[in-house]
């Protein structure tokens, strides 16, 4: 097996809301206040091979975006390590750190807020290559236009501001900006979620094409299992901060092991010519502030038994290349 390009090694991220002065005083006087801690990401292990597309699915609050931001270097893990080509992110200095940071880029969800509204498109795309001397200063404008052409935008548009583009075009600009610093690895955080269906297909196709052309590796984060399945080689499923299942994309959809994955697969929107009976899993997604004990999914799980309420299931290999965190696999 090839050496992984990116290794997420037992990574956790906790967010703590500290008490303010008034709350601290109230606490001294006996009020029932404590700093709130959210375990956004809870001991996740994941290795991504060069050239692979790793899909990461889960519902809101499951920690998938937090994980993506840690990989992109925007957040640092509370515990654990993220290694890129064997070297831990965030431990390097100076030029080395900068080069490493540029190799991992991020494509954001909101095509509007991820572009600086005061900059012209050619500056949005060309700024980093100019500042980091990726191309000679005189060639920056041409280089930015070339990048825009790569994502399917006319060079003539390079003098415009972001608000003069449609949602799909803005998404393309965000991709061009990331490509311009010659990355190896793209973290795509819900990058097509805000787009219309017909535009979403265009951008997904663009991702597929760019991957081949530039030899890219993706961490493709989405709540939409249908979209993730289309583009990914492997899929990781998260629920309330934990990785619950991991496997080959087609295999995982065909034979989901974890009850949560089963529910997600059942709800992939499909075209039906007759009325569908929606058989939803019951219950609300619990608050990440107070996750249930044991297996986080047990309150909604149709197969939950006593052990699920107490013991956290470990992520174990249930078939070659397939990991799942469910006690049911032990019973069988």
């Amino acid at each position: 097996m090839t050496e992984p390009l990116l290794e997420i090694d037992d990574v956790s991220k906790r967010f703590t809301t500290e008490l303010d002065i008034a709350e601290r005083m109230a606490r001294r006087l006996g009020a029932d206040l404590a700093p709130k801690t959210v375990h956004a990401v809870d001991r996740v292990n994941l290795a991504i091979r060069p050239g692979e597309v790793m899909g990461l699915v889960g519902e809101s609050g499951c920690g998938k975006s937090t994980l993506g931001r840690m990989v992109a270097g925007l957040l640092s893990p509370s515990d654990g390590r993220i290694r890129y080509r064997g070297r831990e992110i965030g431990t390097l200095d100076g030029a080395e750190a900068r080069d490493a940071a540029l190799k991992i880029q991020m494509v954001f969800q909101d095509p509007m807020s991820s572009l600086n509204p005061r900059l012209r498109v050619r500056d949005i795309v060309g700024e980093a290559p100019r500042v980091h001397r990726i191309v000679p200063r005189r060639e920056v404008a041409a280089y930015a236009e070339e990048m825009l052409a790569q994502v399917g935008l006319d060079a003539a548009t390079s003098k415009r501001y972001p608000h003069q583009f449609s949602g799909g075009q803005r998404a393309r600009i965000g991709i061009a900006r990331a490509l311009a610093v010659k990355p190896d690895f793209l973290v795509c955080d819900e990058s097509v979620a805000a787009l219309d269906v017909s535009i979403q297909a265009q951008v997904l196709n663009l991702f597929v094409r760019l991957r081949e052309e530039f030899d890219l590796t993706y961490l493709f984060i989405s709540h939409d299992l249908g979209v993730v399945e289309h583009i990914s080689d492997r899929i990781a499923v998260m629920y309330l901060g934990r990785l619950v299942e991991l496997g080959q994309a087609e295999d995982l959809l065909a034979r989901p092991n974890h009850p949560y994955t089963q529910a997600l697969v059942a709800e992939i929107p499909t075209f039906s010519t007759e009325k569908k009976v929606y058989s939803a899993i019951k219950g609300e997604i619990p608050s990440p502030l107070k996750p249930p004990p044991g297996c986080h999914f047990h309150p909604r799980c149709p197969h939950a038994h006593e052990r699920c309420r107490v013991e956290v299931p470990a992520l174990k290999e249930v078939a070659p290349g397939r990991l799942s965190a469910c006690h049911l696999n032990d019973a069988a």
Binding site: R98, A101, M106, F108, Q109, S113, A128, V131
Partner: peptide, 17 residues
């Protein structure tokens, strides 16, 4: 809090910039 600031950080631009 907007993404374009995070995008700029991803691009390893200096804090001052």
């Amino acid at each position: 809090r907007k993404d374009y600031i995070d995008a700029a950080r991803c691009l390893a631009l200096s804090d001052r910039r």
